[in-house]
Amino acid sequence: MSEANDPSISIEALRRGDRQEFARLVDHYSPLIYRLALKMLGDEQDAEDVLQNTFLQAFRHLNEFEGRSTLSTWLYRIAANEALMLLRKRRPETALTDSLPEEEPLEEPTQFIDWCCLPEEELLSAEGRARLEAAIRLLPETLRVVFLLRDIEGLSIQETSQALGLSETAVKTRLLRARLRLREMLSAYYAERLNAGRKAYD
């Protein structure tokens, strides 16, 4: 997860309007932005729209980039905003439901089967991977975006808070909620696999 590391792109050159430098920026960050958008939206066309809009916005607003965050965090911020805007446009009725998840009490765990002993090739079988992907899509978008930035894109808590304009406390709370929900969903699935395995063995 070191892909977001600074490929030493010159902000000075970008501000001067150096197109070759902008192309380097696009070249380096477009795969990361596309992956985030695809996992956020679950649709290739939507992800491509977000990708294009992110760099169009970046190009337009380069002179507003103040260097208080890294370039990658700034791009993630634009991309996350674009993705959330698109989701709200598609499904306006969901916009309010999960606006302030940190104010609700934490959902307590209900799954207590230990499935850690399952072999990695079973945990990460094609079906297992599909379940992992599906579980992300079942997260409310405000939790999903935090989880993706932190645990998939590998941003720090501080970078995630900068990218989303949230306090670090809010990021931590949402991250915990996202992880706990994913654990619940995966536990339900892997406990089933564990039982199936035991039955086959008996």
Partner: peptide, 9 residues
């Protein structure tokens, strides 16, 4: 859970 997601990134 977190480990598996890191693996699949």
């Amino acid at each position: 859970t977190i480990h598996l997601y890191h693996q699949t990134a």
